[in-house]
Amino acid sequence: MIPVITIDGPTASGKGTVASRVAAALGFDYLDSGALYRLSAYKALKENADLGNEEVLGELAGALAPRFESGRIFLDDEDVTDKIRAEEVGVAASKVAALPKVRAALLDVQKRARREPGLVADGRDMGSVIFPDAPLKVFLTASAQARAQRRFNQLKEKGIVANIDTLTRDLEERDRRDMQRPVCPLAPAKDAKILDSSELTIEATVAQVLQWYRELTR
């Protein structure tokens, strides 16, 4: 069976960075499932679609044909790598991800990403729903304060002004929404390894995931 490592966790927990580095270290493919929801939200916002209209949003998600090339993401030949990381898109993505028809539309896209020699997938339900048979499931978390500080630093590096208290409140609200949604709420898989990175560097976090995987494959 094609091996899969799933890395789930809340917004701004660093799961994308960790997953991509783990994939590179192992020579595996990388799936940023969150990007699919952000792409759906970006498309909806761009077309002024009603974020409460599940039917329309499901159709938009099902029609997505993104390209992932050299670390960049393209949608309709537009480089949207940075655009889909905007806070407005992130908030909309959290709402869109709660809609069953959107999740159903993107389900097959995610499952098809499982290819030789292996896959590292990050998201919110990769281990609990999409790849329940993954040999290693990681739930990467960190305090809202630690995540807000990381997001603040990232925005500052890009020259974007932000307020850390506002970022913290937004993250806490998104956590509540993600954990309380009726469909696939944010929660670790029953057999997931919990990794709190509040006090860890990215390098240390990656090293821990690689250690767990290598212990399984010895």
Rank of each mutant, 00 (worst) to 15 (best):
D191S: 01
G58K: 10
A134T: 13
A98R: 07
A49C: 06
P135K: 13
V91A: 15
Q145W: 07
E59Y: 01
Q208D: 06
K43L: 15
F152A: 12
V206Q: 03
G123E: 02
L60T: 00
V89Q: 04
A98I: 05
V89M: 13
A12H: 08
A12W: 00
E54W: 03
K137C: 00
P100A: 07
S33I: 03
L45A: 08
L57P: 00
D76P: 10
E173F: 07
L36K: 13
A24F: 08
A44R: 12
Y213Q: 02
A23R: 08
G123S: 04
R174G: 01
P3N: 05
T168N: 12
Q180M: 14
L155I: 13
L200N: 13
S128C: 13
T81V: 12
E173W: 07
A61N: 04
A19R: 01
T166C: 05
F131W: 04
R181L: 07
V129G: 11
R103W: 00
G52E: 14
G16R: 06
A148V: 01
E157I: 15
F152T: 10
L200G: 00
L210A: 11
R21Q: 14
A187Q: 07
V120N: 10
N153T: 04
F28I: 04
A134V: 04
Q180W: 12
F152Q: 09
N48A: 15
K158H: 03
S128L: 03
S94Y: 12
T217Y: 03
G62V: 04
P185K: 01
V120F: 01
I130H: 00
S94M: 12
